[in-house]
Amino acid sequence: MTTDPTPHHTTFINVPEAVGVFDSFETLQAAIYDLRMAGFSRLDISLLGGKEAMKEKLGSSYWHAADLEDNPDAPRAAFVSEEAMGELEGAIGGGFFFLGSAIAMMAMLTPASTVATSIAAIAIGGGPAAVLGTLLARRADQHHKDYYADQIANGGILLWVRTVDSAKEDLAVKILKGHSGKDVHVHAWSEG
Rank of each mutant, 00 (worst) to 15 (best):
H8G: 09
S46M: 00
S180N: 15
G192F: 02
H187A: 04
W189T: 13
S60T: 15
A112S: 13
K57G: 00
I92K: 04
A129R: 02
G155P: 08
A66R: 13
G93V: 07
Y148E: 04
F79I: 05
V184F: 00
K177I: 10
H185R: 12
D23K: 14
V184N: 04
S61M: 11
M106W: 13
T6S: 00
T117A: 15
V164T: 12
Q29M: 04
I32Y: 02
G125H: 07
D73M: 03
V173D: 03
H144Y: 15
S46D: 12
K51S: 15
G50M: 04
A65T: 14
L43D: 15
S180L: 09
A153D: 14
M37L: 14
T10E: 10
T10F: 02
N14I: 05
S61I: 10
S118Y: 11
F98W: 06
P7C: 00
G95P: 05
E26T: 12
V19D: 05
A172N: 02
A130M: 12
R36E: 14
H64W: 03
P5F: 00
D170K: 11
L48K: 06
M108N: 14
D170E: 11
L68M: 13
N154V: 06
E83L: 12
G86R: 08
R138N: 14
P75F: 09
T10R: 11
L28P: 05
M106P: 04
A77R: 10
R76M: 01
A107H: 13
Y147P: 01
G59S: 03
W63Y: 08
F25K: 05
